[in-house]
Amino acid sequence: MSGQNKYIVGIFDDEDVLVHSVEHIRHEGVKIHEVFSPFPIHGLDRALGYERSRIDIVAFLFGTLGFCLGITMIYSMMAVDWPMNIGGKPNAAPPIFIPVTFECTVLLTAYGMTLTFFVIAKLIPGFTPKMFDIRSTDDKFVVAIDLGKNHHTQEKIIKILKDNQASEVFEKEL
């Protein structure tokens, strides 16, 4: 099939070894395509040189939107569109805004942020993910190196992986 890239895949057995090895491999000038693991590993994103995620800003913006929508909804229904005399109470008393506005803020923060995460991480049902080795969902840690994007030779990359305690190294076209 055309459009397939050739990868060198290194398998690691231990998460602490993995993080150190990733640092060494990058130090040798090898560009890592991605590392796959069965659970989140602290410090791995730093070892890979990833910038911090800005999803918290998205969450804040959606929260602000929810807050504004909540207040607008209550005010427009209670005081603008159809004001009613309910026991002589004021139509738009701020304390009654608190519970519903809070719920709207939380709802939009949670859904806005998570759906954004699904879109940017391409977590969309129906797609088949690229799996370099299925053991990365079980008990192994998988380092994938795109041969086309590296100036090192294949033999050199394999050697670097093996020198850095990879328990298994193989080629894969995906």
Binding site: V35, D45, F127, P129
Partner: peptide, 8 residues
């Protein structure tokens, strides 16, 4: 949902 477990 197309999950592969990448570090990012």
């Amino acid at each position: 949902f197309n999950w592969s477990g990448g570090a990012k």
